[in-house]
Nucleic acid binder design. Structure first.
Lengths: 156, 156
DNA sequence: CACAACTAAGTTGCACACAACTAAATGGCT
DNA sequence: AGCCATTTAGTTGTGTGCAACTTAGTTGTG
């Protein structure tokens, strides 16, 4: 890769780092959007966007959850989730219900339609796996590396 | 990692894949946003957003470019770039100039202020590198893997 | 030359993502 | 009980990101 002028042993100049930074932050940004594009296509039939699919995955796995918990798992705040959940509710996939014990909290429940949608979502991951061209081990390694970086970044 | 119930030798069920998919697509999405958050902080002083920084990196490296070329490098279309470039122009960092030879094309040029901003951006990558907790080799490996996946996904 | 096909930017509309803020409810603490 | 800090959702405003469309300029072909 001719774009990295310094061999790995020697220190990099600020200018070299700026160039490398370009490549790394760009590649992550681009990969995230490329994934999004393929998911968009795979999810079109289900009427879900990519972030909506993430929310549904959480609900399919762990049943009714307060908005807060969904936000913690997906690293999203209420400013993003509130309108998104309203759209899922308008689509008839979830129901929002203020908790009786703690009236600050709103529980998000799957409707029958929301539960049923899981069946139609089952083939999506296999399509995605094929589209990435990665095998399972590479996929797991990628996930592990990204999770570690995210954890470290969140601490900073 | 207890969340992957099947050992690597045996085939995964659709349900297992749905769970793994959750982890992979989520981790990429989350990592991209975690990067964005740290960049947002590092770029606050420069008055740039993360995508605006990406555009400036391209211009600092390769000088005046038509909107089209910037879009190809950053994998962004005119619907994203046009308003972004208008904001960079309003900030006095770039100048847009319709090409004389091909009047469909608009060249994006750095102003003196835009060129000067590079000096203040030089320390940013080092801060980012430190924040990720990765060494240079890991960073390069991550970039290579992500670039490969993006290329494969774009073909699908 | 005329005209259709193509290309480059820009515009519009919708859906995140996040900062900053508001409103309502809860939990100490005196 | 009274009060204040905290917690939980929701709202508002700005900036992407992208599909679908428009406008203007260019190119190829008969």
């Amino acid at each position: 890769m001719a774009a990295s002028p310094s061999p790995s042993g020697s220190p990099l100049s600020d200018a070299d780092l700026l160039r490398l930074d370009h490549q790394v932050c760009f590649s992550l940004h681009a990969a995230s959007r490329a994934f999004g594009a393929v998911y968009r296509d795979a999810l079109k039939d289900l009427g879900l966007t990519y972030p909506q699919y993430l929310v549904m995955l959480v609900l399919w796995e762990d049943g009714p959850l307060p908005v807060k918990s969904i936000g913690e798992r997906l690293r999203l705040d209420s400013g993003t989730l509130s309108p998104l959940l309203k759209r899922l509710e308008a689509a008839g996939l979830v129901r929002r219900e203020r908790s009786a014990e703690d009236e600050r909290s709103v529980g998000v429940h799957l409707t029958d339609a929301g539960t049923a949608l899981r069946e139609r979502a089952l083939p999506v991951p296999r399509r995605m796996l094929a589209a990435t061209g990665l095998d399972l081990e590479e996929l797991r390694a990628l996930r592990a590396l990204l999770s570690r970086v995210t954890r470290t970044l969140d601490e900073a």
